[in-house]
Design a protein around this nucleic acid. Sequence first.
RNA 1: GGUCCGUUCGUCUAGGGGUUAGGACAUCAGAUUUUCAUUCUGGUAACACGGGUUCGAUUCCCGUACGGACUACCA
Length: 511
Amino acid sequence: MKEVRVRFAPSPTGALHIGGVRTALYNFLLARKHKGTMILRIEDTDQTRFVPGAEEYIIDSLKWAGIEIDEGVGKGGPHAPYRQSERKAIYQKYAQQLVSEGKAYYAFDTEAELEAMRERLKAQGSSDQQYSSGTRMQMKNSLTLSEVEVAEKINSGVHYVIRLKVPTNEEIQLTDLIRGEVRVNSSQIDDKVLMKSDGMPTYHLANVVDDYLMKISHVIRGEEWLPSAPLHVLLYKFLRWEKEMPQFAHLPLLLKADGNGKLSKRDADKAGFPIFPLNWTDPKTNEFSTGFRENGYLPEALLNFLAFLGWNPGTEQEIFSMQELVDTFSIERIGKAGAKFDIHKAQWFNQQYLRAKTDQQLSAFLFESLKKENINCPEEKAIKVCAALKERVTFPQDFWEHGKFFFNAPTQFDHPLIAKKWNNDVVKFLSAYQEELKAQPTLNVESAKMLLDHTAQATGIASGKIMQMLRVVLTGGAAGPDLMQTMDIIGKDEAINRISFALENFNVKIP
RNA sequence: GGUCCGUUCGUCUAGGGGUUAGGACAUCAGAUUUUCAUUCUGGUAACACGGGUUCGAUUCCCGUACGGACUACCA
């Protein structure tokens, strides 16, 4: 097998879509598996759609996700430059070659003339309104104009494009690694523009030329490219690069979770989950979008989730480290059908990955939140808090969200619950418990529990009857981690303070 | 409209001419627990439809339906 060289080739027209991350991932996995090379190429041939910052965003996103680039933009390499806008002359050369060999031609039609053609064909009831073998002889191009006219036009600076002269009625066949044989009759393909009037190539030309020059072995891209793949095959043929033609693998699409259709930012917004890896503010519209990173998704969990959208190892293992993905991945096991994007599963992966970390690793997440809140905390306490909260957390920020009461006395209490459960027995029990706590030199999980049992005995009130109120008193809420553990973490003095506060303030409500 | 691609539980999917059609997420119920969560146990739930081929088809073939992509001097 020849050296595996794959490329991820986004265009810098905005934030990187999550589907793009998956495409990049599959490319990366194949490269790593075969000790090949992962290339990042920026396809910025459409100057009108260029968005400042998008390229950096793409690079940052891949870096965050752990998808490493071996060669390309931001990295350099033997085939530089890797930004297509900087390779204009190269495409120009091949386009000229095709023209001189009669495989492409100049076209001078204006937008209005193209529109008129489409309208005319439509009116005639023609099934397709393409600029193709059937219509090209009625248009203004170097096939219909004399050599002199063409030269005149070009010299006068009139805008023109170069179009591919697609042959009539020729069977074009390609083998897609995922879909098998795909056959298309060339009559279905229109005379695609290769060079635009601004001197830039279109995707089709640039893509084929670069893949050839950069010695790409596998083109792994989204299914939306399948219809134009035959055109690309034709280009390889016309350029006599058939032998070096890469293998194609067209990935199934990522679909929206409910209903049908391609996953879009709109759907994600509606369902309340991100679709971009990192936060992004569109410089043109100023529209802000949240990212997976800022929402608390761990990159390794997101990647694991993404890897399984369209691919599976055929075993029952679900949790895969990057290395395991590399070892197990194969194009043959990529499915054909589109996959709906279900954020629940992504959350489950996140939870799994979070739980697999040590309490100390987890404490780093808590410290991030504490820093924002300007709270100092010994590492020992942070670790204990994380241990207590570990099983009930999906995102890193949950440690703070679910554990605020470990650092600040609650200011809000579950009033309906208090109204229902606060009674004289509770007051009697908590008063006694408070006294026992005061008499105790140190408080830990064991002594808190021991004292609780002792208080129950002394007052004749079962501790089960007051536990929920004790929880509200200490944490403000009705649910949370083990109470004895909670008391151990907040400490003796704070526990006593919170009980006193409740005794003084909750008492009022008892008739 | 045309071309191309696709279709197994609600979702991600395994499987493949003869299976009790398997797993995971979600969901429901029970158990455990001082609450919630976790954990454990169990349950509901799928081969789009119609023809062939075959002793037998969810699996192979052909249609139909449905869905999707593409149909720009966008990628």
